Amino acid sequence: MFNEPVSGHTHDHIDWADRLALLRAADALDAPAQAAIAARLAEKLPVNPTVIDLGCGAGGMSTHFAQALAARSGGTIILVDATPELLHEAERAVRAAAQDHRSGGSTLTGNGRAPGPSGGQHAAAEGTTPTVEVRAVVADLADGSLPDLLPTADLVWASRVVHHLPDQQAAIGTLTAIALADGVVALSEGGLSFSCLPWDLGLGRPGLEDRLQAAQAEWFVGMREGIDGAVPMPYGWTVALERAGLADVSSFSALVDHPAPGSDGLTDYVHHHLSRLATHGADHLSDEDRATLAALLDPVSSHYLGKRRDLFLLGARTVHYGRRP
């Protein structure tokens, strides 16, 4: 560990440790999109950079950062999360990526520091092996003193975590304070909601997924309202980055596309995904829609989703980024 655990508190009152299986499944299905995002952001970085992954969750994105850095000049990845169980899994995942990458001639290390290469931006110097050092910190992104706990970084990354914090604009200011001059701050927020079900399921009223997404939106409003000290942010993410003082602000998206019939992993993910929507949207759904969901999620039901061959996953992850002047 980079430092000692300080807290497992979360401002949104969500038990994120209990969602570990869902986060792992999402990382597996997001892998192609995450790899594309990591490669695109890595192109903006100097030799032997430091990358900080704030709210790293189960660590899926940082496995791709590690691979992108190892394919270039090496560097350092610092994992940060407020939930120790997730941080432990993130370390495990990145270490596993380290083992996988060794066969390709690159080496990622754990806590042991290794000298960085001195080659060009996209490759190590001749005769050296790119090394990626991995560290971990238990910390709260809403803590204004976070810049004092972490080194400055060439890339500060936060994926779908800022919207769970009381003051989103202040949190982006904290991210910006951690970035080096000319460093990049990048947020994965928004995008296109995932779709996974056909419009007519053969039970219940057609269009269930549209109503589930509407119910999820109502739950999200309530979640934000339930955060102690929540501050509205009535503008988009690019405006928020500009207000934090970042320059060259822009966005790009990566498609997540798993056509039917998909794999066993897709079925498991859809089950977790719909279970979460059923919990979040229960108060915003009709009795008929709740009954339809219950049938889809019941392994002994004739309508159990695990028996279907028309499940799919389609959506997009959007990244908003800017450079600290």
Score class of each variant (00 low, 15 high):
residue 96 A to R: 14
residue 96 A to W: 01
residue 97 A to Q: 15
residue 98 A to K: 00
residue 98 A to V: 00
residue 100 D to S: 13
residue 100 D to C: 04
residue 101 H to Q: 12
residue 104 G to C: 08
residue 107 T to Q: 14
residue 108 L to M: 14
residue 109 T to K: 04
residue 109 T to W: 04
residue 109 T to Y: 10
residue 110 G to P: 02
residue 110 G to R: 06
residue 111 N to R: 13
residue 111 N to F: 08
residue 112 G to M: 09
residue 112 G to C: 02
residue 113 R to N: 11
residue 114 A to T: 10
residue 115 P to W: 06
residue 115 P to Q: 13
residue 115 P to L: 14
residue 115 P to M: 11
residue 116 G to K: 08
residue 119 G to F: 05
residue 121 Q to S: 04
residue 121 Q to G: 05
residue 121 Q to F: 02
residue 123 A to D: 09
residue 123 A to E: 12
residue 123 A to R: 15
residue 125 A to R: 09
residue 126 E to L: 13
residue 127 G to R: 07
residue 128 T to P: 00
residue 129 T to W: 06
residue 129 T to I: 15
residue 129 T to F: 03
residue 130 P to K: 00
residue 132 V to T: 03
residue 133 E to M: 12
residue 133 E to V: 14
residue 134 V to A: 06
residue 135 R to V: 06
residue 135 R to K: 11
residue 137 V to E: 03
residue 137 V to W: 00
residue 137 V to G: 05
residue 140 D to T: 09
residue 141 L to F: 03
residue 142 A to V: 07
residue 143 D to F: 00
residue 146 L to S: 04
residue 148 D to S: 14
residue 148 D to A: 14
residue 148 D to M: 09
residue 149 L to F: 00
residue 149 L to M: 11
residue 150 L to W: 08
residue 151 P to G: 09
residue 151 P to L: 07
residue 152 T to I: 02
residue 156 V to K: 07
residue 157 W to I: 01
residue 158 A to T: 01
residue 160 R to G: 02
residue 160 R to E: 11
residue 160 R to M: 10
residue 161 V to W: 03
residue 162 V to E: 02
residue 162 V to M: 01
residue 162 V to T: 10
residue 163 H to G: 06
residue 163 H to I: 09
residue 163 H to N: 13
residue 164 H to Y: 10
residue 164 H to V: 05
residue 167 D to H: 06
residue 168 Q to R: 15
residue 168 Q to H: 07
residue 170 A to R: 15
residue 171 A to V: 15
residue 171 A to D: 00
residue 171 A to M: 02
residue 172 I to S: 04
residue 176 T to V: 10
residue 177 A to Q: 13
residue 178 I to A: 05
residue 178 I to Q: 03
residue 178 I to H: 01
residue 179 A to L: 06
residue 180 L to V: 05
residue 181 A to P: 14
residue 182 D to T: 12
residue 183 G to Q: 07
residue 184 V to G: 05
residue 184 V to N: 00
residue 185 V to C: 04
